[in-house]
């Protein structure tokens, strides 16, 4: 039983990391220009907000679909 629980924890971690890879790929293209000696403040802010706005976009679409179905 504990083995199963540990396995589930690992699967959750794997899904999380898979998402991080997908977000980094997409947000890198949107936010980072020529790579410099460190991330510019603007690039870092853009990366953080990129994740949040992507999830907002997804939630907005899910909610609006529910609404359209209910009508």
């Amino acid at each position: 039983k504990e083995v199963l629980q540990a396995l589930e924890v690992e699967q959750t971690k794997a899904r999380f990391q898979q998402q991080v890879h997908a977000f980094t790929d997409m947000c890198w293209d949107k936010c980072v220009g020529t790579p410099g000696v460190k991330l510019a403040g603007k690039e870092e802010t853009c990366l953080m907000q990129c994740v949040d706005r992507f999830l907002d976009t997804s939630n907005f679409i899910v909610n609006r679909l529910e609404e359209l179905k209910r009508r």
Binding site: C50, R53, D56, T57
Partner: peptide, 30 residues
């Protein structure tokens, strides 16, 4: 369908991710 729409809407409507989705971004997503 949901995943494609999210991808297309995000690419077209959120050129510069800001502090929150604003009205014109929401209208563009819809």
């Amino acid at each position: 369908l949901l995943s494609k729409m999210t991808e297309k809407a995000f690419a077209k409507c959120i050129t510069k991710p800001g502090a929150a989705l604003d009205g014109s971004e929401k209208s563009c997503i819809a």
